Simulated assay, not measured.
Amino acid sequence: MTTAVRTTPIPARLGVALVAAAVVNLLVALVASTLDAGGIGMGLQPSVFLPATVVGVLLGTAGWFAVRRIAPRALPVVVPVVLALTWIPDLLLLGQGATLANVVGLMLMHAVIATAVVVALRPTMR
């Protein structure tokens, strides 16, 4: 006799991932803002990073399914490469008055979103 394995539907997984990413990004922003003495605080306001978190989860999901459809074995390479590419604009902010705390905070926010998407969608690889 076999037992059926119940899995959580993808929209529910993505909803949890989105809420988790938003909460963790809020904490990252609070810490980065505290350490951002005299900086420009770029992207550390909830009105900026919360919509960006939603967009990041949506784009990450679309990218995941596109790569999974075309070259599923490439995901372990594509995900970190895309994450690293998202850090380039963050690093460029150093030349525009952002502090290291600001930039590292933004980079961590991108990593949080990528992690949330990967954790939510990893079961789709089976």
Score class of each variant (00 low, 15 high):
residue 91 L to C: 01
residue 97 G to H: 07
residue 49 F to M: 03
residue 97 G to P: 07
residue 86 T to E: 01
residue 103 V to M: 00
residue 58 L to I: 14
residue 72 P to M: 03
residue 89 P to H: 04
residue 73 R to Q: 14
residue 80 P to D: 10
residue 108 L to E: 03
residue 70 I to C: 04
residue 81 V to Y: 08
residue 101 A to E: 05
residue 79 V to N: 05
residue 103 V to W: 01
residue 77 V to D: 08
residue 94 L to P: 07
residue 90 D to P: 01
residue 99 T to E: 11
residue 99 T to K: 07
residue 68 R to W: 03
residue 83 L to P: 01
residue 74 A to M: 03
residue 56 G to I: 04
residue 96 Q to P: 00
residue 71 A to V: 13
residue 98 A to C: 08
residue 59 L to F: 13
residue 80 P to S: 06
residue 78 V to C: 08
residue 48 V to T: 15
residue 59 L to D: 09
residue 51 P to D: 06
residue 64 W to K: 07
residue 53 T to F: 09
residue 81 V to W: 04
residue 51 P to F: 06
residue 63 G to M: 15
residue 58 L to E: 02
residue 106 L to H: 03
residue 82 V to S: 05
residue 109 M to A: 12
residue 105 G to F: 01
residue 60 G to T: 01
residue 75 L to W: 09
residue 84 A to K: 11
residue 45 Q to P: 02
residue 99 T to L: 07
residue 82 V to P: 03
residue 60 G to Y: 01
residue 88 I to C: 05
residue 58 L to K: 08
residue 47 S to R: 14
residue 82 V to H: 00
residue 110 H to I: 01
residue 54 V to F: 11
residue 86 T to N: 11
residue 54 V to R: 06
residue 69 R to T: 12
residue 73 R to D: 15
residue 51 P to T: 03
residue 55 V to P: 04
residue 84 A to L: 15
residue 110 H to L: 08
residue 105 G to P: 05
residue 82 V to N: 07
residue 86 T to Y: 02
residue 56 G to E: 03
residue 100 L to I: 14
residue 92 L to V: 10
residue 83 L to E: 02
residue 78 V to K: 10
residue 110 H to M: 04
residue 86 T to A: 07
residue 110 H to P: 04
residue 102 N to D: 15
residue 88 I to G: 04
residue 90 D to G: 03
residue 107 M to C: 12
residue 106 L to W: 03
residue 76 P to W: 01
residue 48 V to D: 14
residue 98 A to N: 08
residue 106 L to V: 06
residue 80 P to Y: 06
residue 100 L to E: 11
